[in-house]
Simulated assay, not measured.
Amino acid sequence: MKKILIAFVGLFTLALTAQAQKKSGAIQFETTLDPAAMASANGIQLSEEMKARMPKSVKTNFELLFTATNASYMPVEDNEDSNGGGGGGMGRMMMRFGGAGGAREYYYSFADQKLTEVFDLMDTTYAMPSKLTVALGNQNFNMGNRQNNNANATANNSAVQFLPVPPTQEIVKSDETKKILGFNCNKVIVKTIRKAKVLDVERDIVDETALWYTNDLGFNFSPNPNLWTEGTVLAIENKGNSTLAKSIEYRGVSSKDVTAPKKALPITADQYKAKMEAMMKRFSGGQGRQGGAAPAGQVRNIVIN
């Protein structure tokens, strides 16, 4: 009887240890950009010669580190393990480039549902409060920001002319489900409808983005904070641009890896916008597009009705 009790206690301890380990770890994400498909989605006509010169795809890796209380998300490179281990793991790159096209670091605090964006601007590291939401007008996606901005600028000077009226948005829940990394995921579609002239004919341009999320991980997250409805988003799908969780590893994570750097100076969204507008005016002589770069995350699929 004593041996049975000892065995039972041992199994119970192992179960608790395994459960505790699943409260921290790393999820690797991969972003894939197809430049030709992105151009087509933005109404840009490309010659076969131009398509041939473009890369078939541009891939970028990102890593989500999480504990029971916090998480961080940023670009990584394939070299050394982010927690100091060797052997060709994914090592974090500190890539905080403020302004258009720059990647950012995102830090999550689960208890109070706080999100902080950390980025560099004019040799200064800033920390800006943010939140998970579905926001209008944020069309760019992490390392694809420059490509998307260029495509939008070209589109606005060619076949598609977006009109200066506020867009509308619709969130459609789907019955579709699938497993990603073994987690049960539900699908939701975010539709953004914008008025535009296509070859001088007014049409509705519908951007559709599919989000796949799970509630099994127990915390809220999205690779794009402006594309989130609930749960942990493990995939964002769209024509020409997508992101997907590729692997998960349960392991110990250092608290410093999921905590925003203390040297970062606080900045509000309004202050950041003012700084970006001032920079754009200086660079373009006052004629440039106003507004800062959109945070990481959205991919686009344009349907002309």
Score class of each variant (00 low, 15 high):
D216F: 09
Y107E: 00
A293K: 09
K114W: 00
G137Q: 06
N152W: 10
P295Q: 11
F221M: 00
I248C: 06
V58K: 13
G25P: 08
F97I: 14
L136I: 05
G182H: 07
I236E: 03
T192G: 02
A278Q: 05
A71M: 04
N42G: 13
P223C: 06
A210M: 10
Q139A: 10
N220F: 02
S82Y: 14
L65Q: 10
K281D: 09
Y213D: 02
N301M: 10
G291Q: 02
K246C: 08
R146D: 11
S247K: 14
A274I: 08
E249L: 12
T17M: 15
G87E: 10
T214I: 01
T229D: 09
T32D: 03
A41I: 02
S24Y: 06
E277S: 12
I302H: 12
G87H: 11
L163M: 09
T13D: 06
K281R: 13
K22H: 10
N61K: 15
L16W: 13
I27R: 03
A37L: 12
E48Y: 05
A264N: 01
M93H: 07
G240K: 02
I236G: 07
A20Y: 15
N79H: 15
M1F: 13
V188D: 00
M122G: 08
V172N: 09
L132G: 04
C185S: 06
G86N: 11
Q19K: 14
K246W: 05
G231M: 01
R282L: 13
T259V: 07
T125S: 09
A103L: 14
N224W: 09
A7G: 11
